[in-house]
């Protein structure tokens, strides 16, 4: 006999919230991020703002990696491109945050697409190599040279502390305002990413990733879809870079080094690849660990300069041993259990 909970209509199956447990989690969880800034310390508010910003970037990485199926190593510079573009739009044109984010996203999408072009080669590490080269050349050379200021607008730039959403209408300035703004943008991108994965485009992406041959027999244009994944992912990373620049209020090439790339991979791996919730969990966990545990450790052992890479290296190894599919998979088992509750099977 059927036990627990099952879908009764197509529409049920397609909903963002499909299971009882998801409704409960949503109802209980929603007020938390909305009320949190009023009870958290200023420092924690700022940590969570950063979490939201990184979620957008790692969602972009998730789209590129899971959908185009190739390793991209230019997360740092993609965020940098978003940051420098946004800074110029805000400082020189005074158009405000939303246009800055949009243009930063589009410029980054274009660069990501161009560097995704080697993906037309059937197999290999062409994209990994081309994006790694971009990462080093852009950060070690291009953004550091004043000769290229016409393009990047200056190696180091500051952003105003109060910026309007569009021109100077509705300014975002205080830590709480930044928190809410980043939260809303994050939610928008998380929902868009989920929608993508539930519809035809997501299915085509997944088909290509899972089985290239059958995807083509089913009429899927491999190359076009891969490029689309790079463009969509690149857009999100660019937006994340723009927000990061606004959040810090200052940009310099060192902020966008390969460390960012590696950090985002740790976040993605920890949460569990291939799921939006996994990304959210992974970024949150890594940022909180980074902020509390690592800071304590560094204070305790100030001489240990290699502490950070060792720390994240250990995290990755532990994840790979304990639950290679990440936190999300572990929670998934718990969810399956709760879904069928109170029936044992």
């Amino acid at each position: 006999m059927p036990s627990g909970e099952y879908f009764t209509s197509y529409e049920d199956r397609m909903g963002l919230l499909r299971w009882r447990i998801e409704y409960v989690a949503f109802a209980l969880g929603l007020p938390i991020p909305l009320l949190a800034p009023f009870v958290m310390t200023g420092q924690l508010v700022s940590v969570f703002t950063l979490v939201f910003i990184f979620i957008i970037g790692v969602l972009g990485l998730h789209v590129m990696l899971s959908y185009a199926g190739e390793i991209v190593l230019a997360q740092g510079v993609f965020m940098g491109i978003g940051a420098y573009t946004a800074s110029r739009i805000i400082n020189e044109l005074a158009l405000g945050i939303l246009p800055a984010m949009l243009i930063a996203g589009l410029v980054t999408a274009f660069i990501a697409l161009v560097f995704g072009l080697p993906a037309w080669r059937v197999k290999g590490f062409y994209v990994a190599i081309s994006t790694l080269a971009l990462q080093f050349i852009a950060i070690q050379f291009f953004f550091r040279r004043s000769e290229f200021a016409v393009i990047h607008g200056g190696t180091q730039q500051s952003l105003p502390s109060n910026i309007g959403l569009v021109t100077d209408v509705i300014t975002i300035g205080s830590a709480t305002e930044e928190y809410f703004f980043a939260f809303v943008v994050m939610v928008v991108f998380a929902v868009l990413t989920m929608n993508l994965s539930r519809t035809g485009i997501g299915r085509m992406f997944r088909a290509l990733h899972e089985n290239d041959l059958s995807a083509q027999v089913l009429g899927i244009n491999r190359f076009r879809n891969k490029l689309m994944a790079y463009a969509i992912g690149g857009f999100m990373v660019g937006v994340s870079g723009a927000l990061y620049a606004i959040y810090i209020g200052f940009i310099t090439p060192e902020f966008y080094s390969i460390d960012i790339t590696l950090l985002q991979y740790v976040m993605l791996l920890l949460g569990g690849m291939g799921r939006v919730w996994g990304v959210i969990l992974g970024v949150t966990t890594v940022e909180l660990l980074n902020h509390y545990l690592l800071e304590t450790l560094i204070n305790a052992f100030p001489e240990a300069t290699a502490l950070e890479p060792v720390f994240f290296g250990v995290i990755i190894i532990v994840v790979l041993i304990v639950e290679p599919k990440g936190i999300m998979a572990a929670l998934g088992q718990l969810k399956e259990y709760l879904r069928k509750w109170p029936y044992a099977y």
Binding site: L192, N195, L196, T199, G200, I201, G202, R203, M204, R206, A207, E210, N211, L213, S214, A215, V217, L218, G219, I220, M228, I232
Partner: peptide, 29 residues
């Protein structure tokens, strides 16, 4: 060459997806 990790329904839905020529905007929204 099936999509091993997915269920039967998803495997077939993938083909329908192609048939439909999905458009990015309507997918996102």
């Amino acid at each position: 060459e099936l999509f091993e990790d997915e269920d039967v329904l998803e495997n077939i839905m993938t083909t329908r997806a192609v048939k439909q020529r999905p458009n990015l905007l309507s997918a996102l929204l």
